[in-house]
Design a protein around this nucleic acid. Structure first.
Length: 155
DNA sequence: GCCAACGTTGGC
DNA sequence: GCCAACGTTGGC
């Protein structure tokens, strides 16, 4: 299957691209996704080698700050079973995990983040999911041309 | 801090 | 299965 592209949102106060850069091997698991649409992307669609844009939400600046690669495909998100974790799901059962995660590895932290403002002003990005009205998905798909444009803007 | 948009929950 | 109430997200 052809390489696909995604965008992950993260609040830098929770987990920033700098935090990712400090992780061993610059890789981490992407836990805490508790939305079914996002879960289905993770569980059913993401494949090793797919590209991931890393976006800082609730931040200054609001921007795509780098890109990553999926290095491990979906497996159960252990935080759903951990009562001490803020993503604990009391309804989740071990035999049939409800929530999944992938592992990502940082490929590049942009020298120039691509801001939300830039994206909104760019006619080529008018269909970008991130800027669609009321879009609250924390994981979404990105087309190849959108990916290429973001990379170009970061240069 | 506000609030629009959206997902989820639960009573009926 | 409808839908009002509620909680959350996230830009502003």
């Amino acid at each position: 299957m052809a390489k696909k592209y995604w965008l992950f949102k993260s609040e830098p106060g929770e987990f920033s691209i700098d935090d990712l850069e400090k992780c061993p091997g610059k890789r981490t698991y992407w836990d805490g996704i508790r939305n079914y649409q996002a879960r289905n992307f993770i569980r059913d669609k993401m494949r090793k080698g797919d590209g991931v844009l890393f976006y800082h939400s609730n931040a200054d600046p609001l921007a795509v700050v780098g890109h990553c690669e999926i290095v491990k495909e979906a497996y159960p998100d252990h935080t759903q079973f951990d009562p001490d974790n803020k993503h604990f799901d009391p309804e989740a059962i071990q035999k049939e995990p409800r929530w999944f995660m992938v592992d990502i590895k940082l490929k590049e932290k942009f020298k120039t983040p691509v801001t939300l403002k830039q994206i909104k002003e760019n006619p080529k990005m008018k269909d970008f999911r991130l800027i669609q009205r009321g879009n609250r998905l924390s994981v979404m798909s990105v087309t190849k041309s959108e990916w290429d444009e973001i990379i170009r803007l970061s240069r």
